[in-house]
Nucleic acid binder design. Structure first.
Length: 636
RNA sequence: GCCGGCGUAGCUCAGCGGCAGAGCGGCUGAUUUGUAAUCAGCGGGUCGCAGGUUCAAGUCCUGUCGCCGGCUCCA
């Protein structure tokens, strides 16, 4: 028969497998007519075959999936009474869920890992067997695999059901898989965590083992090094080391204390934010932290957001609640006067601090807190302005994020579930108009996006933008929602050219998300080494000996007068020691001043990354640093 | 909230039934320092908190608060 291997036609005998024609390649699996298959797949006349390697996501998925089976086999050998949950490949590795008679301890992972080594050594072939539903159920029942039985019963009719055998181990699995267990080179079991069966809190909690594997020990080591780098960049660690912020039991979980250094960075970002918003026709407002219960009843928060709200307090017989969002206040401001179509759009921004009850298990440094400041804004506009307003927000977001070195995004357009329209508020026409405006705005901005049906909140279609940082990790970035709920509930209107009342559209948007979360991601993105415009302390002046302190202070004054943030380290320690400390604090510039410098009115410049820059005059220093501040920051 | 792990000096951590420790940081003194750690000395702890077991509890048990890894959820 004739088949095509990597674009080349070839003649081969019937019964030839994909693995045989790809034998020369380091193939993990085969792509047969576009679908990833086992190497043992028997080819048919006219098939087109391509190798699948570890270099591509599909290859890693196969590799990690098989690794998870090896993990499961090892666990079954050590814990015969274990029942299997699911064990897929994930973005960076794999996991497998188990129902075990006792909690796993760290030493168990070592034992399991060692058993995996034996299984790999045995190079057990993985064999795919297609079975009937009854056979699959029977087989799983024989092993006492109650979770697997549930999975079999849930499989759609008509789909082939396959079991994969490797040695004494059998798993219900669609595949594909590596040809044998010996093909997994190096692996590491990383952690154990609880996970609900099928992700549902009401179900049993299983023990999930996470791991990762690679063809070679070197690749595994490199991966573990990347994980280590992520740990080094952890904003919680850097926040303490650089004295940026703290979160303390005594103040309360999830409540951030901004120390002077962290507050300085935040102030720079907020100043930039305000300037940029004013430049783009926003007006800035303020609203209070608490409000009467009636307000939250009108807004609907008491019915759909209550579990995230704090109980509140009693004032002169009135019940007040702490705000979890700023929008109701902005709406009251809108409603405080009769609005004409001529005033629209109104763009109102606020760095508004809100409080939300988050369950204790989800709190995480600055990324998930209970009190945070949103860079919030609400745009009230007419339908014919909707698209331009969204384009404006996208442009603002893109500009602001680029200023912080974020240029990679993933955009999700969350829209209604078309099969379940009744669970959303607002009119069909409104949703259609909003979705059309969002899509057209994205197209005009030239931004690719993914449409996610059923992901919209009940009151609004939305754009959710995820940022990629220096390590390629994703962070929640801007969100834009077209709200159909609040204008309705507060009966907002404007008077149109026809003299009649019309309902305005309301866009709810945030660019940075919250100051807390954004700063957290920024710290990790820059690994704590902020560019000059953001660095809380830009310069540290280091007098060589005590007699140079006066000159050092003079230098600091000159820098301060030029708008630069500088400090003198007058501690009675050797220069090398003070340089070391400045380096660890990631201060961009160190200025060494001794006899030579004091005599000539110059400074010896050391940069935190580039090292010794030689001797500069004071004017040169101020000029160059100001230039760098401007160049490293946003450009209007 | 749930599962597991962990709370010992400001920080990083050792000690795991028998007199609370180390390094770094801090303070004092000496030193007057030239590009990533000068030397010496001194402080510093209800061993997260509350109960319990024991002659004796950082150490074992229970509860609680907090942190970490996940699950679920979100800016």
């Amino acid at each position: 028969m004739r088949i095509t291997v990597q674009g080349e036609e070839r003649e081969c005998p019937g019964g030839t497998t994909a693995g045989e024609v790809l034998a020369a390649q380091a193939s993990l699996a085969a792509r047969v007519n576009g679908a990833v298959r086992d190497l043992s797949q028997v080819l048919a006349e006219g098939d087109a075959v391509e190798p699948v390697t570890f270099a591509e996501p599909a290859g890693r998925e196969v590799y990690w999936h098989t690794s998870s089976h090896i993990l499961a086999q090892a666990v079954k050998r050590l814990f015969p009474e274990a029942r299997l949950g699911v064990g897929p490949a994930i973005e960076e590795g794999f996991y497998y869920d188990f129902d075990l008679p006792r909690p796993l301890e760290p030493q168990d992972l070592e034992r399991i890992s060692a058993e995996m080594g034996r299984i790999v050594g045995e190079a057990l072939p993985l064999e795919r067997r297609e079975v009937t539903r009854g056979e699959a159920e029977e087989r799983m029942a024989a092993g006492g695999e109650s979770y697997k039985i549930e999975l079999v019963r849930g499989l759609p009719e008509g789909e082939p059901i396959s079991l994969y055998h490797q040695g004494e181990f059998v798993d219900l699995c669609a595949g594909p898989h590596l040809s044998d267990t010996g093909r997994v080179g190096a692996w590491k079991l990383l952690s154990v965590a609880g996970a609900y069966w099928r992700g549902d809190q009401r179900n049993a909690q299983l023990q999930r083992i996470y791991g990762v594997s690679f063809p070679t020990a070197q690749e595994l080591a490199a991966h573990l090094e990347r994980l280590e780098e992520a740990r080094r960049r952890d904003h919680r660690r850097l926040g303490r080391e650089l004295d940026l912020f703290s979160i303390q039991d005594e103040a309360g979980a999830g409540l951030v204390l901004w120390h002077p250094r962290g507050a300085q960075v935040r102030e720079i970002i907020e100043d930039f934010w305000r300037r940029e918003h004013r430049r783009r026709g926003y007006q800035l407002v303020f609203s209070p932290h608490i409000g009467r219960e009636q307000l939250w009843r009108t807004s609907g928060h008491l019915s759909w957001y209550r579990e995230n709200m704090y109980a509140g307090l009693e004032v002169e017989g009135q019940h007040y609640l702490v705000k979890p969002m700023n929008c109701p206040y902005h709406i009251l401001m809108y409603r405080s006067a009769t609005r004409s179509y001529r005033e629209l759009p109104l763009r109102w921004g606020e760095l508004g601090t809100v409080y939300r009850y988050e369950r204790s298990g989800v709190l995480h440094g600055l990324l998930r807190v209970r009190g945070f400041t949103q860079d919030d804004a609400h745009i009230f506009c007419r339908e014919d302005q909707l698209e331009d307003e969204i384009v404006g927000v996208l442009d603002l977001a893109r500009y602001m994020l680029a200023s912080f070195g974020f240029t990679d995004y993933e955009i999700v357009l969350a829209v209604r579930d078309p099969g379940n329209k009744e669970k959303y508020v607002g009119s069909d026409a409104g949703w259609d108009a909003a979705e059309k405006a969002l899509v057209r705005a994205l197209e005009r901005a030239g931004l690719p996006f993914v449409r996610a049906e059923g992901e919209a909140k009940f009151y609004a279609p939305a754009l959710d933008i995820t940022l990629k940082d220096a390590l390629g990790r994703g962070w929640q970035g801007p969100t834009i929602q077209v709200d159909f709920n609040l204008p309705e509930r507060f009966d907002l209107s404007y008077v149109g050219p026809d003299g009649r009342e019309h309902r305005p559209f309301m866009i709810h948007r945030t660019v940075l998300g919250s100051m807390e979360r954004f700063l957290g991601s920024l710290i990790e993105h820059y690994a704590g080494a902020f560019p000059l415009w953001l660095a809380p302390l830009q310069v540290r002046v280091l007098p060589v000996a005590e007699r140079h302190a006066a000159y050092a202070r003079q230098v600091r004054e000159a820098l301060g007068a030029a708008g630069l943030r500088a400090e003198v380290d007058e501690r009675d320690e050797k220069l090398g020691w003070r340089i070391r400390h400045a380096q660890l604090e990631k201060i961009p510039y160190m200025l060494v001043v001794g006899d030579r410098e004091a005599a000539e009115g110059r400074v010896a410049v050391r940069h935190r990354e580039q090292g010794d820059q030689g001797s500069w005059s004071l004017e040169e220093l101020v000029g160059r640093l100001r230039e760098e501040v401007a160049a490293s920051g946003p450009r209007p």
